[in-house]
Design a protein around this nucleic acid. Sequence first.
RNA 1: GGCAGGGUGGCUCAGUGGUACGGCGGAGGACUGCAAAUCCUUUAUUCGCGAGUUCGAUUCUCGCCCCUGCCUCCA
Length: 458
Amino acid sequence: MKQQHLVVYNSLTGSKQAFEPLVPGQVGMYVCGVTVYDYCHVGHARVMVMFDVIYRWLINLGYTVNYVRNFTDVDDKIIARANERGIEMNALTDEMIEAFHVDADALGCLRPSHEPRATLHMDEMIAMIRALVDNGHAYVADSGDVLYAVRKFSGYGQLSGKNIDELESGSRVEVDEGKRDPLDFVLWKKAKPGEPSWDSPWGEGRPGWHIECSAMSCAHLGDSFDIHGGGMDLKFPHHENEIAQARAANHGDFARYWLHNGFVNINAEKMSKSLGNFFTIREIGERYHPEVLRMFMLGTHYRSPLDFSDVAMDAAKAGLDRLYETARRLGLKQHSSDNVSDSFAAAMNDDFNTPEALAALFDVCRRINKNLDSGADVSADMAAFYAMTDMLGIVQQDAQAWFQAGDVDAARIEALIDERNQARKDRDFARADAIRDELAAEGIVLEDGANGTGWKKV
RNA sequence: GGCAGGGUGGCUCAGUGGUACGGCGGAGGACUGCAAAUCCUUUAUUCGCGAGUUCGAUUCUCGCCCCUGCCUCCA
């Protein structure tokens, strides 16, 4: 059954739905970014990569996409880290945002249309909080904090599929003195001495975490927009609270489709900073090309858990090498746009099923190799091959460089290859094999082809 | 405890009411002086367990076992 039109799994309804944007031809998409106090780990990478693929596919479908991904650049952890390091908060967040971009670029992620920072949207946040206070959805507690009254919002719990009473019965939340309800959350936090703060109708303070996303998404995309995404762990309470704030303050529906990606696990356990079982993108980058990490992620559907391991990364590298091998045989890349195979398109249209899309890519890859072997025409398949790899954001490097990157003395290798080929011509295979073994010991593999001998680093 | 998502070959990962996609790995073959790469063949009578519905279930229903996540900050 071919899927001609995009169907997405909407966390809000718990089912797959045909995707129909609010405005035909246009998509507004907001993805929760990161809190910038440290380097990104593999879990963050998954959000970046998967929503990058979604972004690319939406564009391919012909939509004009307004893709917004925020930076949380003020919060407790940031302040604590800045104090630890003895630097200003902004110095820390600027540094981490730059690092974020380096990592995202390395992973081959396109830049979003907008990357708003919380600290640059104080006016919007304060306006939204004021609206909530004015219409009775928020109140000023004895502590001076402004809190959101969850009981005043009838739809609370719709996204996470919970109701307030259930949440409270199993709640681990400490009951705060000033709260009218244990689930009430902070909209505006009164400043403590020495903390960064902004002026507001409720005195000096700073915004709560949830309000920034409500305010920034609506500021860039309007009170109603199409897609809101992020990691599964943000579903509750973060996204639930975003909905409560935005719908109570504005008149729109807020986000209509909610997309949540699964976690990255280590030994079947969630990778997280609190558990300390995480690898940063940079650490992985020392052992694997970032594109291997991307390939690894594409092999699993975005909503499923993804178990990170060296074995899995090695397998991803082997598969990616095979694609690069084909790219190398094809030679110069022919740019193409919408030549993806039908099965690839069907897979992507079915809630961005990248594992199935990869299967479609490998089908074409195999056919190309076969036809290249037999000398048949591959032009149509080549266009499809590159259209699909571009859509997935893989095979973006020069194929020759992919295999020959690293610390190698190419001139010396070429010289040895010449020497070996002379030996082969002289049928001195002992000498020829000795040279090959010598290079193999250095991780250089020789390949004798119809057009001479090539080499690659493994 | 409540809610959510899982358990598919050596590993990994899709999928479907009619005996299972792809990748990695293994085996055999073609090619090669030998390799490497590539191609071909092959690698699950079987989809956690038990029952039910059905002509037929891995796919639907029920029960059970196990795993993970969320319910607090977390992508």
